[in-house]
Amino acid sequence: MAFLLPHLRSGWAVDQAILTEEERLVVLRFGRDADDTCMSMDETLSSVADKVKNFAVIYCVDIEEVPDFNAMYELYDPCTVMFFFRNKHIMIDLGTGNNNKINWAMDDKQEFVDIVEVVYAGARKGRGLVVSPKDYSTKYRY
């Protein structure tokens, strides 16, 4: 479903997409379009993109096409979702130990919308770290 989402084809494009977005949250999905995990995540993203369009915008970045951020963001997971607001990285306490990103595929659309909402609300208040409504620390057990 990646074709339903706008893609950023260069590092400069990523930078500009975040710089020019002043009011909305920027959700970046780093990964490969052909990857299974990524495809699963893209399905969720593409279906919620329209619902959150008033306060968030979702982009896809292919980590092979745009390798500029791989080292700094440690993009070695098949799928990584990160949030930026006004050119600032917003962290989420997901309970997984890594507050920087969502590095698994989310199936539940509402859960993802909730996370985006929480991140947007916190970022608007100037928070650099927001707490996810749901704790994902036990995710792999079930």
């Binding site: 590092g11 500029d68 890594n98």
Partner: peptide, 21 residues
């Protein structure tokens, strides 16, 4: 300034990453 690991501090913005690169 960006030592990720555990994700305890925010990562730089993509613009900063490009500049550092």
């Amino acid at each position: 300034k960006t030592k990720t690991g555990g994700g305890s501090r925010p990562l730089p913005s993509p613009g900063d990453v490009l500049r550092q690169n």
